[in-house]
Every structure is written in structure tokens, then in C-alpha cells.
Amino acid sequence: MAENNVTNTNTTNSIDNARKYGTKLWKKKVRKFFNNRLAVFGLLVVVIFLVLMIGAPIFTKWDPNAPNFKAKLVGPNAEHLLGTDSLGRDLFARILYGGRTSVLIAVVSSFIGSTIGTILGAIGGYFEGFIDKCLVRLQEIVSCFPQLILVLIVVAFIGPGTWNLILIFALTGWTGCFRLVRSEFIARKEETYVKVCEAFGMSNVKIMFSQILPSVLTTVIVQLTMNIPGYVMQEAGLSFLGFGVPMNTPTWGTMLNAAKASSILINNPHCWLVPGLAISLFVLAVNFFGDGLRDVMDPRQQ
């Protein structure tokens, strides 16, 4: 017994020792990511945006919703960094506070959509058969249904709002992820390592989520980041039409909406240029970041 204990501790020591010198795949991946200049640029811009949005009260003294009729439609100057809109609200403050809502909508709906898609895709792809057929039909119905109609219905019955928009985006946005995960699962469940786990008596749920999912998850994460710019644009579009977030909440879309009068379009281009540029820059940055992430995470490129 005592002897057994001694060997036990020895073993643990040498294994612990080996653990220190094991391969650190993460370090390699991080290095590879930082070698990609566009991706680093994307990450940098996203981080700057996020810091500015989260710390908005530190970076601007203006209230995004307080009108100032003494300074309507002034161009960028020292007092108002990016000028003011037709109600004299500071555009810089509105970009920062509005970005909070825009990015929140995009990130949360992308996240929820991907989660739903991943879980359903995993179930469909792994079990196939009847459940899979039902899920595929459901996916087809959802992706055929025009999103705008759904938005109109929700706005008509519940009224416009941030969370309503997130709900709609999440409920219609899971289909892409579903198809991706399902096809990956169908391909991967035939791999020998899945059979090995079966032979060890591993449960289906464990095989799905601890064996197959990790390798699929990298593609899902990339898909998730790639979806974010799409939702930013959609939010802007719907808010511009007046179906998205209520006008009194600043978002990049409602800012564009507020600048749609023809006199402003012609005489005060900074009103629409500022939110337009913010959207473009953010979308571009997230896309670059997502591209870089894909190059690093995709297991086929190892």
C-alpha cells in the first residue's frame, strides 16, 4: 500500500512536469493572428469603438438626448467634435451612446441566433432521421419567411423596441448557423474518433457536445462575428424606415433617420456622414477581424 502511494506521487510529478512543456496551441494561434495586419487593424478599431462606447460619459460631456436650440446643425468644431444635428444634439455623444444600442442588438442577436442554430444543427446532424427532417423543414420555412413582414407584425402588435428587434433577429437568424453545424456534424460523426468514443461507452450527448462540437465551434465563432456587421446594417435599415428602435433612443440607424430631410442631406452632410461612416468603419473592422479569426481557427488550415 505504502509502496503504491510512492509510485503514485512519482507519476503525478513527472506528468505535472510534462504538463509544463506541453504544446501550447493557443500561443501559436495568437501569434499567427497578430501576423495578419488587416485582422489586427480590425481588432484595434473594434476595441477603440467598444472602449469609447462603454466609457461614453468620460469621453463626452454632452447628453445625447438633450436638445440645444442655440447650436442647431453646427459643423464640427472644438465644442462639438462632430457637430450637432437639427435639434442641436451633439453627434459625437450620439455616436457613442447610439453605438451602445446598435452593437448590443447586433452582438446579442448574433449570439442567440448562433446558439439556437448550433444546438438544433447538432441534434439534426447527429441523429438524422425524422427529427432532422422536421428541423430542416422548419429551417426552410423560417428562411423563406420575409423578415420585414415579421418586423411589421411585431411592430404593429407590440410596438418598436430594442428587445423586439433582438428577438426577431435571433428567431430568423439561426438558419445559416443551423445549416453549417448540421453539415459539419453529418461529416464528422463518421470519423473514427467518434466510433472510438462509442466503443468506450460514451453517451450520445457527451459525444455531440464534448467530441464533435469543439471542432465545429471554431467555425461557429467565425460565423458569429461575420453576422454582427449584418445585424448592425439591418438595425440601421429598419430604424431608418422607422420600424426598428424608437426614434427617441439614439442608435446609428435612428441618427440616419433623423438626417433624412432633403435640406439636411444637401446643406449639412456631416449629419448623415458621421453615422454612415461609423457604421461602415465598424462593419469593415468586424469583417477584417472575423476573416483573421477564420484563418487562425479553421482546423482545416492547421
Binding site: 473514427t192 474518433y193 466510433k195 467530441q211 469543439p214 471542432s215 482546423p299 492547421q302
Partner: peptide, 11 residues
Amino acid sequence: FQDPYSALNPM
């Protein structure tokens, strides 16, 4: 199993 290249989970 036959194929040692796919019998270990690459992740």
C-alpha cells in the same frame, strides 16, 4: 481501428 490518423480527435 484501421486508420490511426482519424482515430484521435485532432482538437
